[in-house]
Amino acid sequence: MAGTADMAAGTGGAATALRLVLKRLGAGLVTMLLVSAVVFTVSSLLPGDAAQETLGQSATPEAVAALRQQYGLDRPAPERYLRWLGGLAAGDPGRSLVANMPVAEVIAGRLPNSLLLAGLTAAVSVPLALLVGILSAMRQDSRLDRGLNIATLAMVALPEFLVATLAVLAFSVELRLLPSIAMVKAGAGWGETLRSLAMPVMTLSVVVVAQMARMTRAAVIAQLGQPYVEMARLKGLGPARVVFAHVLPNAVGPIVNAMALSLSYLLGGAIIVETIFNYPGLASLMVNAVASRDMPLLQACAMVFCGAYLLLVLAADVVAILANPRIRQG
């Protein structure tokens, strides 16, 4: 991701790194702004609007016009966009039409659950993916590597609902070990919460681990072909030493990038998993918003997801910049 051309050793390493990080940050903000324009434009393309939607077909034109005015829908689109953008920036993205509550409150109720699910999945899948990816890169073209390759290739293409279905059948129908609905109760202890989250986390991890492991393997293998690795081997270092002391520090950038991209997949995967396990997270909230055409809520949810995605990509870029010794030491 990070351009290598402008990475030639500068005078002050820290200053160069800082400048690159700031540049990425700025680019991220611009992208976020453009994304908000796309989300707003697409979701307000339709002629029928929220006022009509709320009052139904039988409403009198006067009533619709009054409500439209109350929602500010009679203003021209650019003005509504700016107002919405200002609201977003100030933490007030409007009112949910269905819940009849501020969108911020609705989202605040769901966001911790989603973060918990994503955090647990990351905690499970990152170490596992690193292990699988590095192992198969070290044993490149061995039977193990080929087996893992086919396994991850197949796992990447599995629909989440199949994994979830099989997990429910195995763990709650046959073995009766885990609950098939992931309820998060307010007063529940850690043990209970973990038990009820076990299957959603497992389901999400299957696809994420497979993706991450494939990209980790590719990143490590790309480094294994470099001359410095051959040099280290010729020095007589064992394969483990070569990988851990020489390859990994150089592969951190690509690996973190792979992690970020795969974790961003969580955002989409969560939509199916939250629905199937009845988990009260942000993704299922967004699905409900689509079903009930609750546009303010939908727009806000979409922006949260896009923001999370951009943050992940940004974090990966920053780590890649900081991990690159040519920039760090200048």
Partner: peptide, 11 residues
């Protein structure tokens, strides 16, 4: 930069 499933939902 809009995750594909999110984009599809908005559409």
């Amino acid at each position: 930069s809009i995750p594909s499933k999110i984009f599809a939902l908005v559409l």
